[in-house]
Computed example of a mutant assay.
Amino acid sequence: MPTEAQPATPLREFTQRLSSTPRGARLARRLTRYHLDGWGIPYDSELSDSVEAIVAELAANAVTHGRVPGRDFELRLTCHAHTLRVEVSDTLAERRPPQEPERPAPEGESGRGLVIVAALAKEWGVVGREVGKTVWAEVTAPGR
């Protein structure tokens, strides 16, 4: 009897809807660290720190720039082979981030989120969805 081929590295996935509030953004960061640790990426490792920073920036953008009252945002983490992917989806399609983040003025108090994401991720982008948009970022997960 033939058997189906199994992927070399199992896909790990976590998805959670969170309130579009600062509290929801904080919870997204904490859940990210918790699940990465469960996947063998320990707290305070360089990879965990980088992914947490990406989630922090994307979640903050979702609750600040993509918030629709009464609608949640969604966090999705996947890990397959050597790639860890972060997706943050909100319900406001009209406000899409620029494809190339602009460097803010040194004295500016905001505008650094996507610059941080671009620096930490090997790739990032934005895709539309039926309601809203998803901002995603991928990082290399060495030894995964």
Rank of each mutant, 00 (worst) to 15 (best):
W124E: 02
P10D: 02
A118S: 13
E4W: 05
S89N: 00
E52P: 06
T64I: 14
G132C: 08
F73M: 08
D49G: 10
R26T: 07
T64E: 11
T21Y: 04
G111N: 06
Y43K: 04
T3M: 08
H82A: 08
A81M: 07
R29K: 02
R76N: 03
A121W: 00
T140P: 06
A25I: 02
G111P: 02
T91I: 14
V88N: 07
R95A: 08
V139L: 09
H65A: 09
W39P: 01
F14K: 06
F14N: 15
E100D: 01
G66V: 00
G128D: 02
E107P: 10
L47R: 10
F14G: 04
T32M: 02
A62E: 02
G125S: 10
L47P: 06
V135E: 09
W39K: 12
V63R: 03
V139I: 13
E102N: 09
G143L: 10
S50F: 12
G143N: 11
K122L: 04
L77Q: 01
F73C: 14
E46W: 15
D49F: 08
V127N: 15
E74Q: 05
T78M: 01
S20F: 04
T15H: 10
R144I: 01
V88Q: 05
E46K: 07
L36M: 15
R17V: 07
D37F: 02
E138G: 03
V115R: 07
